[in-house]
Amino acid sequence: MTTTRREYVLQALSERLSTLPITFKRNDPLPERVPADGLLILRDGEMGEPEVLLSPLTYSWEHEARIELFVAAPTAAERDRQMDALLAQLGVLIKANPSLGGAVEYAEVQAPKFEDIAPEGAAAIRACEVKVLLHYTSSGPLD
């Protein structure tokens, strides 16, 4: 079975994200509890409308993948510190190899969006969403 360009790109991003010191999942539902080391969920996101070039027919994508980060700690200060450290590591990871090993032309990290969650009977959670724009080309919309 042949892997599509889209899946190849998402696998390249997944491989890099899985090196972070946090539990990594892809497209999983939100768990009831956040692991002690935190949780990162990569969502495939939206591919958007491609720019189509002719001769040869080429689809140029700006694929918007989403990274969801979750940390749980007893105090707001600790949650903030953990989230800041994870975001700094994520930034270094993408900056060090913005082509994801040649899988994309460029991976561009967007500004984070934060949310605090207080589930009943569990430690408070600091959540963050980071969009990553993945610039790449394919020979068709399903390739």
Rank of each mutant, 00 (worst) to 15 (best):
T3R: 13
T3P: 01
R5W: 04
R6H: 12
Y8R: 14
Y8C: 06
Y8D: 08
L10E: 13
Q11V: 07
A12C: 05
L13A: 11
S14F: 13
S14G: 10
E15K: 01
E15L: 08
R16F: 07
L17D: 08
S18R: 14
S18T: 06
T19Y: 07
P21S: 14
P21V: 04
P21R: 13
P21Q: 14
I22P: 06
I22W: 15
F24S: 07
F24D: 08
N27C: 06
P29L: 14
P29Q: 10
E32N: 12
E32C: 02
R33F: 14
V34S: 14
A36W: 09
A36N: 14
D37T: 11
D37F: 09
G38T: 06
G38M: 11
L39M: 08
L39K: 01
I41C: 13
L42E: 14
D44L: 03
G45Q: 12
M47E: 15
G48E: 01
E49F: 05
E51A: 02
L54N: 14
S55A: 15
P56H: 15
L57V: 03
L57C: 12
L57T: 02
T58F: 01
Y59P: 01
W61K: 02
E62H: 15
E62V: 02
E64N: 05
E64I: 01
A65C: 03
I67H: 11
E68W: 07
L69P: 08
F70V: 10
V71Q: 11
A72E: 12
A72I: 00
A76Y: 14
A77Y: 05
E78M: 07
R79C: 11
D80I: 09
R81L: 11
M83F: 07
M83N: 13
M83D: 10
M83L: 14
M83E: 14
D84G: 09
L86Y: 06
L87F: 00
Q89A: 12
Q89Y: 06
L90F: 11
G91Y: 04
G91Q: 05
V92H: 08
V92W: 11
V92T: 10
K95D: 12
N97E: 15
P98T: 12
P98G: 03
S99I: 02
G101D: 08
A103E: 04
A103N: 03
E105P: 00
E105M: 09
Y106F: 09
Y106W: 10
Y106V: 04
Y106N: 06
Y106R: 00
A107L: 04
A107D: 05
A107V: 04
E108N: 09
E108I: 00
V109I: 07
A111Q: 09
K113H: 09
K113W: 05
D116N: 11
I117S: 06
I117A: 07
A118W: 00
P119L: 02
P119Q: 02
E120D: 03
G121A: 06
A122L: 04
I125V: 12
R126Y: 01
A127F: 01
C128G: 06
C128K: 05
E129Y: 04
E129H: 05
K131N: 10
V132W: 14
L133W: 01
L133Q: 12
L134T: 10
L134W: 05
L134S: 06
T137S: 13
T137E: 13
S138R: 00
S138V: 03
S139V: 11
G140F: 00
G140A: 12
P141A: 08
D143C: 07
